[in-house]
Design a protein around this nucleic acid. Structure first.
Ligand SMILES: [Zn+2]
Ligand SMILES: [Zn+2]
Ligand SMILES: [Zn+2]
Ligand SMILES: [Zn+2]
Lengths: 162, 162
DNA sequence: CTTGAACCTCTAGTCACTAGAGGTCGTATC
DNA sequence: GATACGACCTCTAGTGACTAGAGGTTCAAG
């Protein structure tokens, strides 16, 4: 019995393993499996030994997912976008609405971060260092209550990763 | 036997329950308990019936925490900041370094979001809507691969909450 | 045929909370 | 003093979007 897929056939039919798909899209192997698990990427065929074998369609869909995620679309939203992309005859207005919402979201975030930037800058300027902590305006500024741009705790994200 | 704490005594000695502390600081009750659990806020005394009783020190410390969190300092960093605030004789340079790092972080985030904003704006402009999905430039733009500002997956945050 | 990288599944951990179940406490009113 | 009822307690699990690891199997080259 011949193996279902040889490397030669793979090259011809563009059937690739998960590692190759990862390399081509820049999405980690674990993340690809995760996308399959949550239903973003359809489950591919398997080799006789139960390994995933991807085709061109998967590559394209994963590139789509990656790009949309890079742009900050949340996975839930992506689901709608993907469903839409699968129906070429539908009008595209919904896609525009989704993109506009995302843009508005990004702008809100920018506005918020700019407020933080201003306050942090002010705080950082308020003491030049070298003082004992008890006299430091930075520490004092943090200790002071504020009522300005406070946002309900838990829905914020400003200081973690980029 | 008299109760350890009456409401009258509470008013005089400024000993308050967790709900009152939450109301005064704008931090939710659950979050306060969480801060205690992770060691940000020291465990307060308890009433005879095992309920938390907070004093002025807790109020101040929680306000500090809240403000720093609002400014996006991650909890880990906050730990350092609080340790510092507890040592009034130390020089404050470390506090400045922490604040500067946070400011730089916020600025990096802003830069990143501005790049996203530009691309999203370009995409949103590229099709005015009303077309079938197959011809929509928005969908097409998302499907196209990109090599520009891509960031390792999982360390990004652009589209979720504010 | 043997090696070893790549693959598989499953579970748990991340961050900073948030929500809920199921039970106890405190106090105001009767 | 009994009763009501909100506030409080602990503990566990869930969120988003992955990431990391254990422990085992498969593939393809030499
Ligand atoms: Zn200083
Ligand atoms: Zn502030
Ligand atoms: Zn369109
Ligand atoms: Zn792009």
């Amino acid at each position: 019995m011949k193996r279902a897929i040889t490397s030669d056939a793979a090259a011809h039919e563009r059937v690739i393993a998960i590692g190759a798909l990862a390399a081509r899209t820049g999405v980690k192997v674990e993340t690809i499996r995760y996308y399959e698990q949550v239903g973003l990427l359809p489950a591919p065929e398997r080799s006789e030994g139960n390994q995933r074998r991807y085709g061109r369609r998967h590559l394209e869909r994963l590139a789509f997912i990656r790009h949309a995620r890079d742009l900050g679309f949340p996975v839930e939203t992506l689901r709608g976008l993907l469903a839409l992309a699968d129906r070429p005859d539908m009008p595209c207005d919904e896609a525009h609405r989704i993109a506009a919402r995302q843009l508005a979201d990004v702008r809100r975030k920018i506005a918020h971060l700019r407020a933080l930037e201003a306050e942090l800058d002010r705080i950082a300027q308020s003491c030049l260092g070298g003082a004992p902590v008890r006299d430091c305006a930075v520490i004092e500024a943090l200790a002071k209550e504020q009522r300005a741009d406070s946002v309900p705790l838990g829905k914020r994200d400003a200081g973690s990763a980029c």
